[in-house]
């Protein structure tokens, strides 16, 4: 490993391995967006102040702008591109459309990833828990009420799927 040079790292994103060469200073959000061309994850503040870059790392929602790509080797990363099954949106994605849980859509990937992490860990959250899960995701369009509604409806839809 040369100082200041590029070094290899294999990122495991949405179940696939991506061996890439990056500088140690490359953040995960930049690696996703530039090296992997997974542009669904948005970069807004680069300082952990907005939540647009939220991805799930080893089951937990995190800000990919404050993670180094080289530091993510061997960790299971899920991005917005990993939620749909083929052409079928996930129940949470469907609920965001149905509830109008966004306007401009720039924070949406992050909102969805935060709620996806919540629903994976707690399939039957209260509205308060849903809201709490997205306190770290700014929506400047102010779609908050509909974001919470989407989380609630997704949880209900997933519960129905479980029963079926």
């Amino acid at each position: 490993m040369a100082a200041n040079g590029f070094q290899p790292v294999t990122l495991t994103v949405n179940g696939s391995d991506y061996p890439i060469m990056v500088e140690p200073r490359r953040t995960l959000v930049d690696a996703l967006r530039h090296d992997l061309a997974l542009t669904g994850t948005k970069k807004v503040c680069a300082m952990g102040d907005c939540g647009a870059c939220t991805v799930i790392v080893d089951g937990r929602a995190m800000y990919s702008c404050l993670l180094l790509a080289v530091d993510c080797a061997g960790r299971a990363i899920t991005t917005i591109e990993g939620l749909a099954h083929g052409n079928n949106l996930s129940p949470l994605q469907e609920a965001f459309v149905a509830s109008d849980g966004f306007q401009c859509g720039f924070c949406t990937s992050g909102q969805i990833m935060s709620l996806h992490a919540l629903l994976q860990a707690h399939p039957h959250p209260s509205d308060e828990e849903i809201a709490r899960a997205v306190t770290g995701n700014i929506c400047r369009c102010g779609a908050y009420a509909n974001i919470v509604k989407a989380g609630r409806e997704a949880a209900e839809a997933m519960a129905r799927q479980q029963e079926a």
Binding site: L83, L89, Q93, A98, G105, T108
Partner: peptide, 21 residues
């Protein structure tokens, strides 16, 4: 009616200016 571009926006496939490659 839900937004026509809803599907693109919730799947991360909506292309914004910074997503051009």
């Amino acid at each position: 009616y839900p937004r026509l571009e809803g599907r693109e926006k919730v799947s991360g496939r909506a292309i914004y200016a910074s997503d051009i490659r």
